[in-house]
Amino acid sequence: MHARTDDGNTGDGNTGAGQDGESPGSCKRVLEPAEVRRVLTRIAHEILERTHGADDILLLGIPTRGVPLAQRLAGRAAEFEGRPVPWGSLDVTMYRDDLRLRPARALGRTELPVDGIDGKTIVIVDDVLYSGRTVRAALDALTDLGRPRSVQLAVLVDRGHRELPIRADYVGKNLPTSQRETVRVHLAETDGEDAVLLGEWKGALA
């Protein structure tokens, strides 16, 4: 069973396998591995620039694919600044507004630094920005975890079609799409290689 999340990506923590089998043929590669690498390097620089050297920032990836992205961004930012940049993960499943539309799904992991999120500049990291509902859920989840000084949003792909007043602060690639199309992000950590694919997903249940 593979249902789409709002992001047009399999957001379930347990559906990593077998997804390629459902999208034969009509897939266009939008970003190649080298481009994904360059895009992440640029976002890392932008985050450092906007936060004046990343004082008190915390990168929080949304499972599944936001987490390795947050880790990579933190790694690059740490390289450029010469000191560690904290990162973690933020599972938003319990805060979603579409839980009743599909069978209950497995939970991802929330992992925060021991000193929490109070007073920090949080950068939420996700792979695809689509309706904005996942980000809304993330904002609610953050509220229950503490009171950050500010919250920003970094995404690898912005595919448009927002249903909420939400925009990203850092965008890897703006990708105009139709709602029938699907955007799939593959990362080395979860899928074996880095790529962004655009296509009609035959397995989609809508």
Partner: peptide, 23 residues
Amino acid sequence: LLILDTAEELARMSDRPIKKLPT
């Protein structure tokens, strides 16, 4: 296993300041 894994994630929330979830 799904129940146990879900419980594992939920157990990690029990030391949060706000233990309630809106689900």
